[in-house]
Write a protein that binds this DNA or RNA. Sequence first.
DNA 1: CACCATGTTCCTTG
DNA 2: CCAAGGAACATGGT
Length: 292
Amino acid sequence: MPELPEVEVLVRHLRPLVCGRTIRAVAVRRARVLAPTSVGQFQHALRGARFTGLSRRGKYLVFELRRPGRRAPLILVGHLGMTGRMYLAPRRAPLPKHAAVVLDLSRERFVYEDSRYFGRLTLDTRALSRMGPEPLSDDFTAATFGAGLTRSRQAIKVKLLDQSLVGGVGNIYASEALFRACIAPQLAARKLSSAQVKALRRTIREVLAEAIRFGSTIPLHHGDKCGSDGLFYFGRAAGMADDYAERLRVYDRKGLPCLRCRTAIRRIVQAARSTFYCPVCQPRGKIKPKAG
DNA sequence: CACCATGTTCCTTG
DNA sequence: CCAAGGAACATGGT
């Protein structure tokens, strides 16, 4: 359930639930998700610690904890990979098959499950410092963004995914932002005009902010049962309200008519990921003058 | 069996 | 040193 908006919604949901709670016991069922932190380091650091804050950076969750007798806060970094979920569950509830880390609080427990184990829950904070500015903050300027793009020959869609120029844009919203800005995903990053850079900066902020707003209106039911975790609405889950259909305008719409011009949406593969776009609204070359 | 999947990192090559 | 491309990671759904 990745991408920035889903993480933002999750962080807002979890913050009041975890803050103030103390970790009584730490169970690691899949050591890989802690890497490069070892199981021993992880358990030693977290046992007895109390959650004092939770924020988001790009697609990362940043937990802040305090330990008795220690001044400095402890930072715990989470990432959901492709299939991760984090939630509080009753202590007696059965653990899911792919529970990776379980933190015992007093009457409940914090569960991090991830069927593919691509996510992380670690003390290593290096990924945070490598990431570009927050797309919704004032740090994300057209000037900085444009300067970064100028140095890259990569296709703009691929460049957006590497997180270095702006943090938190994933595969779905990269296609969505490019569609709204009418920029072809194959266009080399350095070839964007300054008008296109400004437009893309604006549409990135727009699609992310809209998705957060939309996600905030959906009730979250995590934990056991209800196979539809409230956070999977960003995928192609069934039972979605109608406004959902309007949210994603190109992603996963291969062969369907473009909502702007009715041309069939195309799917291509870039850097081993699907990209969806409208060949008419997002032209690669110069826009030809209409020939009669 | 085939192909697809919301992500990141590491390795190789130029 | 840097940019770019591809494999790897691991599991489940269609």
